[in-house]
């Protein structure tokens, strides 16, 4: 249910003029909720930033999520993370 919550909060932030990006482990839920921008990561629930104790991977995921801020749209923007 976290994924629906993220989409609904993102919607409110966008309405207030704050651009949002997010991470998702459940692509199909995020697609249904129509979250404005989301990076789909190939990791299990509970591991949105990849792996514990792997700061390099965590930073790569954040960079990829931030890159979606410049996606031309139209929303919703849903892009797969590739770790290479």
């Amino acid at each position: 249910m976290c994924h629906q919550t993220v989409g609904l909060i993102a919607g409110e932030l966008e309405r207030r003029g704050i651009a949002t990006t997010s991470v998702t482990m459940l692509r199909e839920v995020t697609r249904k909720v129509r979250t404005p921008r989301a990076l789909a990561v190939p990791y299990a629930l509970g591991c949105p930033l990849g792996k514990p104790g792997d700061p390099a991977l965590q930073t790569r995921i954040l960079r990829a999520a931030f890159a979606l801020l410049d996606a031309p749209g139209p929303p919703p923007v849903l892009v797969d993370f590739t770790s290479t």
Binding site: C2, H3, T5, V6, I9, A10, E12, L13, R15, R16, G17, I18, A19, T20, T21, S22, V23, T24, M25, L45, G46, P48, L49, L62, A65, F66, L69
Partner: peptide, 17 residues
């Protein structure tokens, strides 16, 4: 959203568990 807008936030990153 009102809090973050008042803080002058430009962009937010949201993370589900």
């Amino acid at each position: 959203a009102a809090l973050l807008a008042a803080d002058g936030v430009d962009a937010a990153v949201l993370v589900p568990l």
